[in-house]
Design a protein around this nucleic acid. Structure first.
Length: 470
DNA sequence: TTTTGAGTTGTTCGA
DNA sequence: GTCGAACAACTCAAA
């Protein structure tokens, strides 16, 4: 008996339901397979920037190393998943193909086609609780986070007993089927891939008397501090099991870990929430979740969109965050809300344009969370996030980057500006600008939109769309 | 069955 | 400086 473990976004051996099931169904003989699918590589989510693929490939190499210490190795093949799986199944006489569920519409179509041709077993989920397992009485998903959270928390907590052990030894079969080597791109700077780094980060974030998670309630919104876990890319590719992360947070809460661990667990629940929404309502990738806001007249000014993408809007906190994204492939969550609100509200640009730029740039880019976040900020999504809730980038900057060190790091041309003016350098007199060497409009752009006028324009456009649908 | 209260992340205005 | 109200309106769940 032989089973194929078809790896997609579960690049780990610890707490892996698919690997566990494959081991059982294969009576110990498991072929770990990753398919390089040209359809994914050319999709809208893999445009110019290849950083997420780079992170994935480095993760495949790390997984291969883990497998080799267990007597197996990673098989990598290129082609359409159905054809690759059909071919490999014939070669090794596989009686089962086992994979973790993937809730994106693209993945569900792909997996449906495979399931019609081969004995495909879909198990587990990248979410902590499987979409469909947390629903209202009528079986439909919650559309309000608070209610979702209540129902999620009412189910038995994730404990250490729920976490699966990695198999000590794997039998990959007698004959070694032909494999490509995992693609050899360099590591993404700042984010070494693989489950060991993921566990190291989880420990650094949650262990010890001065663990950042204990201050998470207070620090998580501060863009100038390193108060977040930076685990999102690892969760994205399953280099860390979300259940392992949830178990860690739950354990801290049970031991009086305070509000920090609760808030962090909430972030994992948002991730679950948006996966459950996408699973039940895949159309959110195309249209507004809130049907009353589907007729907004976007401006979509190309020059302004380009200024936003490149970090040249004249609003320091927006520009710092957009440059951080372009340089590193990651952005602080608070900064994501600020730049998204600025694009959608102040510039009145279709949220789908921002969403797809994020998908292209982010190494943690996940369709469910990314779409959920953009629709939330736009006010078109789940929950009572009213569309007139507009983030003011100056106010947000002063609150969450008080002395401007986040800005100085990513917008070096403003380094000499005193903290009092760093969030609004145009308020310096021309003389002061000259003496600091930052003439606004030359060394650094003048604001591309007036905040008050932009806000009013957005409220008008959203209000008009709502009135038309009424 | 109907009613009612509450709801991640904000801003502005006026008292 | 601080505080509450207004900005609208819908989902959910408890009463």
């Amino acid at each position: 008996m032989t089973a194929i473990w078809w790896i997609r976004r579960d690049l780990r051996v610890d707490d892996n339901v698919a690997l566990d099931t494959a081991t059982e169904l294969g009576h110990g003989t498991v072929i770990p397979l990753f398919v390089l699918d040209p359809a994914i590589q050319s999709s809208r989510y893999h445009g110019a920037a290849q950083r997420r693929a780079q992170f994935l490939f480095a993760g495949l190499r790390a997984l291969d190393q883990d497998l080799r210490t267990r007597g197996a190795w990673l098989l990598v093949r290129r082609g359409s998943p159905l054809e690759v799986l059909r071919q490999l199944s014939a070669e090794v006489g596989a009686t089962a193909v086992v994979a973790e569920r993937d809730h994106s519409p693209f993945a569900k179509r792909r997996d449906g086609a495979v399931a019609r041709a081969l004995p495909l077993h879909l198990v587990g989920s990248p979410a902590v609780r499987i979409p469909g397992d947390v629903t209202k009485d009528d079986g439909r998903p919650y559309a309000v986070f608070g209610a979702f959270r209540r129902a999620w928390m009412a189910q038995p907590p994730i404990t250490q007993r729920d976490i699966l052990q990695a198999p000590a030894l794997l039998n990959a079969g007698a004959a070694a089927p032909v494999s490509e080597p995992p693609p050899s791109h360099p590591e993404v700077p700042g984010f070494p891939a693989g489950p060991h780094e993921a566990l190291h980060r989880l420990d650094a974030f949650t262990r010890g008397t001065d663990a950042p998670i204990l201050r998470y309630h207070d620090d998580r919104d501060r863009m100038d501090l390193e108060g977040t876990s930076t685990l999102s890319p690892y969760l994205r590719f399953g280099m860390l099991s979300a259940r392992t992360a949830a178990e860690r947070a739950t354990g801290l809460i049970a031991n009086g870990g305070g509000t920090g661990a609760s808030r962090w667990l909430d972030e994992l629940l948002w991730r679950d929430f948006y996966m459950h929404i996408l699973d039940a309502a895949p159309e959110v990738l195309r249209i507004e979740f809130n049907s009353g806001l589907r007729g907004i007249s976007w401006r979509n000014d190309p020059a302004e969109i380009e200024a936003w993408r490149t970090g040249l809007t004249g609003y320091p906190v927006v520009d710092a965050a957009m440059r951080q994204l372009a340089t590193t492939g990651w952005m602080h969550n608070r900064a994501r809300m600020i730049v998204a609100s600025f694009l959608v509200k102040h510039l009145l640009v279709d949220w789908r344009i921002g969403e797809s730029w994020f998908m292209e740039q982010l190494i943690d880019g996940d369709p469910a969370s990314n779409n959920g976040g953009w629709q939330w900020v736009a006010g078109t999504g789940t929950d009572a996030a009213p569309y007139f809730r507009v983030f003011n980038p100056v106010v947000q900057g002063k609150k969450f980057d008080p002395d401007g060190s986040f800005i100085r790091r990513w917008v070096p041309e403003l380094a000499a500006v005193p903290s009092r003016f760093i969030h609004e350098p145009w308020a310096l007199t021309p003389l002061e600008q000259a003496s600091l060497g930052v003439p606004i409009g030359e060394a650094y752009p003048a604001p591309i939109v007036d905040l008050g006028a932009g806000r009013d324009r957005a409220l008008g456009a959203f209000g008009a769309a709502r009135d038309r649908m009424r």
